[in-house]
Nucleic acid binder design. Structure first.
Lengths: 84, 84
DNA sequence: TAGGTATTTAGGTAAATATCTAAATAATCT
DNA sequence: AGATTATTTAGATATTTACCTAAATACCTA
């Protein structure tokens, strides 16, 4: 839970997730979508990965990132429980 | 959105919200529930207030805090949209 | 194998965060 | 009014975070 909230607590990382919602992307493609250096994006991707919000697969020299949404259920449950 | 995610990105603050779910509490009662000094709790309450996750009402020398969940809808929407 | 591309790791810096103690403010009570 | 209680503000410190540049790693191709 902690890791997920931490991962979501950054606008760049939230934007990355929304990009990945459309389609899988390589690390480079993700970096190109932002005005941030590639190492910084790599760091953001690492944090998202630690939270299990993305998975990565190495394809040749590329690393393809995909969205994973199953862990969001924990947060959704927590929020809904708080609401009712 | 930013403020809400920020407010939720701390276990103490999330625990405060869950306490307030049960019933309204004074700042002191909230502080007593944690191994943290009152000024620190006051600071956490301020962050929750800035995110509109709690409201406060002064009753005599006490300040009573209540949970507000309406702003959670923004996050819930964002999360659900990401999922489907 | 040498050179090029994609990505991550390492190291450093500035800003934000969580915590503390001490002091200030506000309300109550004797 | 003076003392007590509740809460917040101020100021200090240690940790975390987000970002950068430079270097390392991994893979591909000629």
């Amino acid at each position: 839970m902690n890791k997920i909230f931490k991962a979501l607590n950054d606008p760049t990382r939230r934007d990355i997730l929304q990009l990945l919602k459309e389609k899988d992307l390589t690390a480079g493609e993700i970096a190109d979508a932002f005005n941030i250096t590639k190492p910084s994006i790599s760091h953001h991707l690492d944090i998202l990965h630690q939270a299990d919000l993305v998975t990565s697969e190495k394809r040749g020299q590329f690393v393809i990132y995909s969205l994973t949404t199953t862990v969001l259920d924990d947060i959704l449950n927590w929020l809904v429980t708080l609401k009712d």
